[in-house]
Amino acid sequence: MTITESAALATPHRRPLRRTYLMCEPSHFTVDYRINPWMHPSEPTDTALALEQWRSLRQVFLSLGHQVELIEPAAGLPDMVYAANGGFTLGGVAYSARFAHAERADEGPLYASWFADNGFEVADATEINEGEGDFLLVGDVILAGHGFRSSTRSHDEVAQVFGREVVALELVDPRFYHLDTAIAVLDPVTPASGEANIAYLPGAFSDASRRILEERYPDAILVSDEDAVWLGLNSISDGYNVVIASRATGFEAQLRARGYNPIGVDLSELLKGGGGVKCCTLELRR
């Protein structure tokens, strides 16, 4: 069965929605500095393999009927492939990124320029944030991560820019330094059924933030550390098809039990930089 055929067989409760994504080819991918626990500059990287894996991911999105737009990669910015960190878009407005580490600082203006050139109104951030890495839209609410990369002051800025409720969640495990490594949004819009629409790793959050998640999403999928360490939660869902790390087999089984269609991909080379499916994918909401 092809991916397209599987999408057509969605259950009445799970319907795929066409999405538009921004991606950046990893033409300059390598690991020559360390700004997260996954990165080890002493270990070799294979740019050709990273390109092959990235192109396979892009093809999965296209096969599912999604639109993929591209930003030109820049030499000297090996992490630019992780497009999710380039900003956060909603209703034709793009909130720009201001990176926590100097090694990635030049990515922010490049993404902001792309947004402006492609029809978005750009809201220039004054506070440190790493875009959709730490801002996740769940229905009408924006979940916002802090603890490692994005400032809590950026949460206030996002609330002002978009006029949405912003829920702050504190990350405490350095392996899961962005919110999108610890939470997967399974339904891009609020499901009419009222069913759970996120999955998360409880241990990635402070006690207070875990209580917030338990209260707001009592039926959420709780993912194991064994699946999270492959960045299994760093996934992309269209409401039915969920593109995940192929090694996150336990999460795959949990998704199938809830009526989703998990599609595993291998991004093992890009994992060396601390990124997965979602990290490579920024949703464009015009």
Rank of each mutant, 00 (worst) to 15 (best):
A48S: 12
L51M: 15
V31C: 04
E269F: 10
Q59C: 09
S27H: 13
L90F: 10
P41M: 06
A245P: 05
K272T: 12
R34L: 13
D227Y: 12
C24I: 07
S42D: 11
A204E: 06
P202F: 13
V243A: 01
V166H: 01
Q254K: 15
G108N: 04
A182V: 06
A248G: 05
V166I: 05
S268H: 08
G87T: 08
Y240L: 13
D207Q: 14
Y33L: 08
V158W: 01
A248C: 06
A74M: 14
G76L: 13
H28R: 07
G275W: 03
R58I: 06
E132N: 11
I198G: 02
S113F: 05
A204Y: 03
R256E: 08
M80H: 07
T45E: 02
L9V: 13
D117C: 10
L77Y: 06
R247T: 11
W38V: 12
A248P: 05
G76W: 11
E103K: 05
N241V: 15
G273E: 03
A123K: 03
M39W: 02
H40Q: 08
V31T: 07
A102R: 15
F148D: 00
I71P: 00
T30Y: 05
D225Q: 14
Q160R: 14
V60W: 00
V189M: 09
L213F: 04
S235L: 05
N241T: 14
G145M: 07
D156G: 12
L179T: 04
T281A: 12
T2K: 05
A100I: 12
G145T: 08
A105R: 15
R216C: 08
E25L: 14
R175N: 10
A10N: 11
G273K: 10
I198H: 01
P191W: 05
R211D: 09
T249A: 10
S63N: 14
I3R: 14
A10D: 09
P202M: 04
F251N: 02
S154L: 07
E43G: 03
M80Y: 03
P174S: 13
T126H: 13
L51Q: 13
L77H: 12
P12Y: 13
T89N: 03
P44F: 07
D46T: 08
